[in-house]
């Protein structure tokens, strides 16, 4: 097993005008790991995640993703993004395309596969998330949970090295959340490397290999799920986690 992490973030800073949203974030994700990032709203979790595939432009710092230096102007961004997949809070499916077309678009236009081959791979991805039977449906005909699963299929179809999840279940009705989390569990079982920003504490506690707690634009504490949830060291971590634990106690 290689020692080099798939994703390595050092001293990441991001400034919007006068406000510093990220104040020196350090984080790494090893191959096959599921790392959950938790923290209060406004802690910079999503911004940090979006810097990893350059949807946000960092002010300074280093990000290495599967060997690509994300901040280097010479890096082929589009190549990098095939290795770094993303799943969005608002799903962001293309409303004018069917589910299978949503998944196969990048396969055709980016990886330049033939239409038949792309469709086959897209169908395989959809099957993996349990939506093979909805291949020809339009996004408007799908529930929120189904749309998000198509979003996941779209990300995995490119066979990335790591997938970034930006609060994947926050926009879902509670009863649909479990379907999506089940797919994410299955992905993890199959060895996919995942960096997940989430509010789903139970999921993080049960499934994550590593949990990172962020607040105020920095990593306050990180460790195994057991360490963070059952034995937090820092005060802020304690108070954040205790709100979850007290619910757990009931």
């Amino acid at each position: 097993m290689e020692a080099n992490p798939i994703l390595s973030i050092s001293e990441l800073r991001k400034q919007y005008g006068q406000t510093e949203v990220l104040c020196g974030v350090n984080l790494s994700v090893k191959r096959g790991e599921l790392v959950c990032v938790i923290g209060p709203s406004g802690s910079g979790k999503s911004t940090m995640l979006r810097c990893c595939n350059l949807l946000e432009m960092p002010t300074s710092g280093t990000i290495l993703a599967n060997g690509h230096d994300v901040m280097d102007p010479k890096t082929d961004i589009n190549r990098m993004r095939q290795d770094v997949g993303m799943v969005f809070q608002q799903f962001n499916l293309y409303p004018h395309l069917t589910a299978v077309e949503n998944v196969s678009l990048a396969l055709c236009k980016v990886q330049k596969r033939k239409p038949a081959e792309a469709r086959q791979l897209a169908m395989a991805s959809l099957e993996r998330v349990g939506l093979g039977h909805k291949a020809e449906a339009m996004p408007s005909q799908l529930s929120g949970g189904q749309q998000q699963r198509v979003g996941i299929a779209r990300a995995i179809a490119l066979q990335p090295q790591i997938i970034l999840f930006d609060e994947p279940t926050s926009a879902l009705d509670p009863e649909l959340v479990d379907d999506v989390l089940a797919v994410m569990r299955e992905l993890r079982e199959s060895g996919m490397t995942m960096l997940v920003v989430t509010h789903e504490m139970a999921f993080a506690h049960a499934v994550a290999d590593h949990v990172v707690f962020m607040d105020g634009g920095v990593v306050i504490e990180h460790g195994t799920a057991k360490q963070i949830f059952e034995n937090p060291q820092q005060t802020r971590t304690k108070s954040f986690v205790s709100r979850y634990s007290s619910r757990l106690a009931h």
Binding site: N53, L55, N78, R79, M80, R81, Q82, G85, M86, F88, N92, L93, Y94, L105, A106, K109, V110, Q111, G151, R154, A155, L158
Partner: peptide
Amino acid sequence: EAARSTGLA
């Protein structure tokens, strides 16, 4: 964002 995140130019 979604389109670009899948590597589309």
